[in-house]
Design a protein around this nucleic acid. Structure first.
Lengths: 184, 184
DNA sequence: GAGCGCATGTAAAGGGTTACATGATTCT
DNA sequence: AGAATCATGTAACCCTTTACATGCGCTC
């Protein structure tokens, strides 16, 4: 359901095509809400069918730009205000942690080093966006202010994971003796 | 794919039934990797068909406990060591942040307060588990040490989100004038 | 005119949730 | 006896991903 409102939200900033939306999703929201183009196009067609968006213009390579309708605006705002937040997370890195005891200690160490690196990099990317925004590179409309807040979440989230991986690397973790696997 | 290995990983600690696994998933991994019982039972049957687990015993209410096979152990370990981590996140709370500018400021403030509360609570829950573990309540086998590490991720992740929501609450956010929606 | 990037889709398969269904055992 | 809990499953649906397909327009 969220992709639907993500699209409406982006269209609330102004008209865009499916292609545009796919790019912007990838760039700005890709790491907190991935969306592939087939889903986007499908959803746009459904939204148009329901009258929440409409074709604003048709361009060169059969490009169709959509505009949000008043009904569409009402719909996103309703979602933001009335729908309760789905707090579901699904983080493979943390799932794996529950099974670290099955790993060879050397493998684990290497694994955590690479994880820390990845997360630190992701945090740095968000930080880069944040400083550019704070410098005023993208103007200072309410939309970019919101993106700045979202970026802050990215920074803190990935930094937390990077710190965690760093911390975990230094945790002592006994390797299972033969008795620890498969018996109680 | 991950549920598969999550089940194998849990079964590496010792035999369990689908019901047990569903409960343990819910309790320990529910907030980083949700899994409903229909999926679990289905996956267990597939795993058994592939010889990665086998029925260890049949109990009272047609309970079937499974045991991991040597092939199953090889399979989880292979996943942990060789498969690259899927770092995909999907966090609705952060997606919503990109659209805060569409919200009524009073609604937004209330929203962020409730978010902060939720995340702080989740962090506290994990912290509760962590102190119990550090007290030695669950023994100190390598399995619980791994769970301790996973719990630490939960603490840091949710604390980061709680801090973020708290921070966001104090960010100035201009409401869009009539010109900001649907134009440009 | 060759190749790249724009632009939109379809089809198939996978992963996950929700609702429904059922029966056995234990507890009060 | 009735209620709660244990225990397993099926069916339908929804969401998402991956692979395939196609054609236009711009640039070199």
């Amino acid at each position: 359901m969220s992709l639907r409102f993500g699209l409406l939200g982006l269209l609330a900033e102004g008209p865009a095509s499916g292609y545009d939306l796919a790019r912007r999703f990838q760039e700005m929201l890709g790491s907190v809400w991935p969306a592939q183009h087939p889903k986007i196009y499908a959803e746009l067609n459904r939204l148009a069918g329901e009258g929440l968006i409409e074709v604003e213009s048709e361009g060169p390579r059969r490009r169709k730009a959509y505009r949000i309708t008043p009904a569409g605006l009402v719909s996103v705002r309703g979602w933001l205000a009335d729908t309760e937040v789905d707090h579901t997370l699904r983080i493979q890195s943390v799932l794996r942690a529950a099974f670290f005891w099955l790993m060879d200690p050397a493998d684990l160490r290497r694994h955590l080093e690479r994880e820390a690196e990845f997360f630190a990099r992701a945090a740095a990317d968000y930080r880069g966006y944040a400083v550019a925004k704070d410098r005023g590179d993208f103007g200072s409309g309410p939309q970019t202010q919101s993106l700045r807040i979202a970026a802050e979440a990215g920074i803190r989230l990935y930094q937390a994971l990077a710190d965690w991986a760093e911390w975990a690397k230094d945790q002592p973790l006994a390797t299972p003796g033969p008795g620890d696997v498969k018996e109680t």
